[in-house]
Design a protein around this nucleic acid. Structure first.
Length: 553
RNA sequence: UGGGGAAUCGUCUAGCGGCAGGACUGCGGACUCUGACUCCGCCAACCAAGGUUCGAAUCCUUGUUCCCCAGCCA
């Protein structure tokens, strides 16, 4: 795993920060921030930003704030805020402090007054539609609003009245006075404040006037003494506005905005609007559904913070629009879990095996190592008896070439136990296999069989000792790499993204496993105990399958 | 002939005038009481055309393709 200890891979932002430090900019300080809007759960794309911002701060002995960009109360909530805090923390990062743009509302208001006094902002009575018309198009310049040259004193009075609630929602806005002919549309007198009589989750009913992102973000950065303000590519055209506000206001600190490419992951969607839709329309169970690309979903699926951080390191940071394959994420979690997850045996789709030459009333406690490469992880006992359960897939009455598992008349090794031979196949009236009658070779416990080679090894459970478990098998949520390319992304939803196996069995040693614990069920995949589990019924989520070079053939 | 960005193996990424390297994937093989892991090997790239230079992925010119922007969202 290539996380904190190792030197991180070079990227253009680290290069910039290193150069700034060498040039002794910002008094040798590095201060970053992760600025989510609390209007949804964090997803793997946010993890990239979190790892970048907290990672840069960590690497250069700086600080990173967690700042909530809570300027649009209509969509935000404390619930989302808490979920975000939990997720950042779970990823293993510690913020220097938690901040809220809403904490700066008073300062922001004062700064706006300064802007008005300097003749750099005005109160506009144009409607939203009119503002759009006046803005011009990509190829044609805009026209000035009739209110553009409103006298400063009048602007001041009006702005105060806006704050006092004297006007209806939407009747007035405060706009920056920049350049209606700018080729950059963001500079055509952008809106700074709008009137919204909405309860804010932190300031309650204190305000009916809320600042816009472009105005709020740069000032918040300046207030917090941010040195490097890292954001995604779509804000590149906003940088002139970011700089304009801070220059006009002569703030004590002027952070440098640097843009990088957001994460795009194949077979999922990343837009919050669409994730919202998946939840509210019931295509998934909740924000933490293991099929969701949210941090909470990945956590519930069994992903580890280390794997997610490793992933963010592996994908790199550039300005190029890139599509990351799901295989990269899966490789990260397999690498981590292969190393750290204890092994156990589980039978997903049981098939009964009766050992005809094994005493009816005998039970042996066999020892099984918890990790093949790490004996220090210990071992546990597994009961062995006359009636066993094996995986249905591990027997075939029509084996393909090179099939190494059990066939009629053939032998197979039971993992951590004996070699058995299939004598007879029992079928029901419909011809479906209901049971296998086998014999075991008592001389093969911990020993190779004599005079022959047994290639196959399969997992098993003693029927009377195994405990019931529901196994939830997850697959990709969408069946095309880029669902957002469709007119309606929901058309690409994978109908088989969840398969529930209600009649699975797991070994008894798992009876007291705590929710969230992760295991490798040998030969089938990595699983994580779901919070839906109860004493009566264990529920496991499949995090990811094992690599399977056989299945690929 | 609006503005802002980006182009390197299939994918992601390193490179900063001097042997195009790594990761994921794929394909062979070895090992194996997990068809896992591990190990060995292989396939595979500088968007194009010019120019500068002893030497160009890198510098210059001209193209091409892709992405973003016309919220009182962030």
């Amino acid at each position: 795993m290539s996380i904190p200890e190792n030197t991180p891979a070079p990227n253009f932002i680290r290069t910039i920060v290193t150069r700034d430090l060498e040039a002794n900019k910002n008094d040798g300080q590095v201060v970053t921030r992760f600025p989510p809007e609390p209007n949804g759960f964090l997803h793997i794309g946010h993890a990239k930003s979190i790892c970048l911002n907290f990672g840069i701060a960590e690497e250069f002995n700086g600080r990173c704030n967690l700042r909530f960009d809570d300027t649009n109360p209509e969509k935000e909530s404390v619930e989302f805020m808490h979920a975000i805090e939990q997720d950042v923390h779970w990823l293993g990062f510690q913020w220097h402090k938690i901040c809220h743009a809403s904490d700066y509302f008073e300062q922001l208001y004062d700064y706006a007054v300064q802007l008005i006094e300097a003749g750099k902002a005005y109160v506009d009575s144009l409607s939203a539609e009119q503002i759009r018309e006046y803005r011009g198009t990509l190829t044609e310049p805009g026209r000035p609003s009739p209110d553009r040259d409103r006298p400063i004193a009048e602007n001041l009075a009006l702005f105060e009245q806006m704050r006092n609630g004297d006007f209806a929602d939407g009747s007035y806005v405060l706009r920056a006075k920049i350049d209606m002919a700018s080729p950059n549309i963001n500079m055509r007198d952008p809106t700074l404040y709008r009137i919204r009589r909405t309860h804010h989750h932190r300031t309650g009913g204190d305000w009916c006037l809320y600042p816009m992102y472009d105005y709020t973000h740069c000032i918040s950065d300046a207030i917090e003494g941010i040195t490097h303000s890292l954001c995604t590519l779509e804000f590149e055209d906003h940088r002139p506005l970011y700089d304009w506000v801070l220059e006009e206001l002569q703030t004590p600190c002027h952070p440098r905005q640097i843009e990088f490419a957001r994460l795009s992951l194949e077979y999922t969607v990343m837009s919050k609007r669409k994730l919202h839709q998946l939840v509210t329309e019931g295509h998934v169970h909740d924000w933490d559904d293991p099929r969701m690309p949210t941090i909470a979903g990945l956590r519930r699926a069994g992903y580890t913070p280390a794997a997610i951080r490793d992933f963010c390191e592996r994908i790199g940071v550039t300005k190029k629009d890139a599509w990351i394959k799901m295989a990269v994420l899966e490789s990260c979690i397999r690498e981590d879990l292969n190393e750290h997850a204890p092994r156990a045996m589980a039978v997903l789709r049981p098939l009964r095996v009766v050992l005809e030459n094994y005493p009816d009333d005998q039970v042996e406690q066999l020892q099984a190592g918890n990790h093949p490469q790490h004996p220090e992880m210990g071992a546990r006992s597994i009961a062995f008896s006359r009636v066993l359960l094996i995986e249905r897939d591990d027997f075939s009455d029509d084996p393909p070439p090179k099939y190494k598992r059990l066939v009629e008349g053939g032998e197979v090794r039971l993992r951590n136990a004996y070699v058995i031979k299939c004598q007879r196949v029992i079928r029901d009236a419909a011809g479906r296999i209901t049971e296998l009658r086998c014999s075991y070779d008592p001389g093969t416990l911990g020993r190779k069989p004599e005079g022959r080679k047994v290639k196959g090894v399969i997992h098993w459970l003693s029927e009377q000792h195994a405990i019931a478990a529901e196994l939830r098998l997850y697959d990709r949520l969408f069946n095309i790499p880029n669902p957002e390319s469709l007119p309606d992304f929901r058309d690409a939803l994978n109908p088989d993204s969840l398969e529930i196996l209600p009649d699975g069995r797991v070994e008894a040693s798992l009876a007291d496993a705590p929710p969230g614990s992760r295991y490798q069920f040998e030969r089938t995949g990595y699983f994580c105990l779901d919070p839906d589990s109860s004493r009566e019924k264990l529920v496991f989520n499949r995090t990811v399958t094992l690599r399977d070079t056989w299945a690929k053939r």
